[in-house]
Design a protein around this nucleic acid. Sequence first.
DNA 1: TTTAATGTAACAAATTTTATTACATTAAAG
DNA 2: CTTTAATGTAATAAAATTTGTTACATTAAA
Lengths: 135, 135
Amino acid sequence: MNNLRFSTAIHILVLLDKNQGELITSDFIAGSINVNPVVVRREIKLLREAGLIDAKKGKIGGCALAIDARKILLGDLYKIVNKENMLGRKNQPNPNCAVGRQMNGRLDELFDQTDTVLIETLNKQTVKDFSNQFE
Amino acid sequence: MNNLRFSTAIHILVLLDKNQGELITSDFIAGSINVNPVVVRREIKLLREAGLIDAKKGKIGGCALAIDARKILLGDLYKIVNKENMLGRKNQPNPNCAVGRQMNGRLDELFDQTDTVLIETLNKQTVKDFSNQFE
DNA sequence: TTTAATGTAACAAATTTTATTACATTAAAG
DNA sequence: CTTTAATGTAATAAAATTTGTTACATTAAA
């Protein structure tokens, strides 16, 4: 997770929460985050596919929350923007070594356990909880 | 944490635990992990600086655990090999936007909390616990 | 003195991440 | 029905990160 995806996604959702009832453009969002609008639209695509956001095309288009920010858990958001294990990747160890042969099986268990704890922890907070911290 | 560092480091420590009393070379370790020996030595450097490993130079050199594997917590290991936030990096938002201006402060809190929980979770297991899973 | 190891710097290659350009599509408004 | 302003997305470029490799200095045993 050495990227900007979680930060970008939560920034988008906070902006939409703070502007409920309006349609917000990706250019406006990009201006707040300070990244390229296409990067924002790529992130919005994922959030849309996950059912968090609705987008309207055409003139006077833009996007808005599809569900209440109180229903969006941060762990769910994390899962949308990150498909990898938190503890990173695995090597492809030597199968002729007893340790090497067993390593990835053990790491898979550890990685799964760790990801589960992380997501459960994040799920204790909603986007609304996070957004409410902003004045 | 989109890299091989944690997997590589724990692989090294398991090998050393499984070969207590011997000096193990970075070439042997590299053969088990299936990576370049210099990559192994780079990781060993960190583990050495953290006091987990001793290395002996010269002919019949190699490395060994400096402390008992039962004293090495996985959370401590994680901190040695990863200096970034688990949830990734932060943008440099627009300070002229009310949300953008506050975003990184809020993310810092969330990121710190999350890292703390992860590390505490990992600290429930030692390298020995992990190593004992290997036949 | 030779040999086999660590230690590390310097650089190359590969992969991942982000930025940019271009353009098709959509829908409102004149 | 044409213009305008937005999304949607593909293709590519650029930047940054990660891993691999080469080279060589240093160390210590034989």
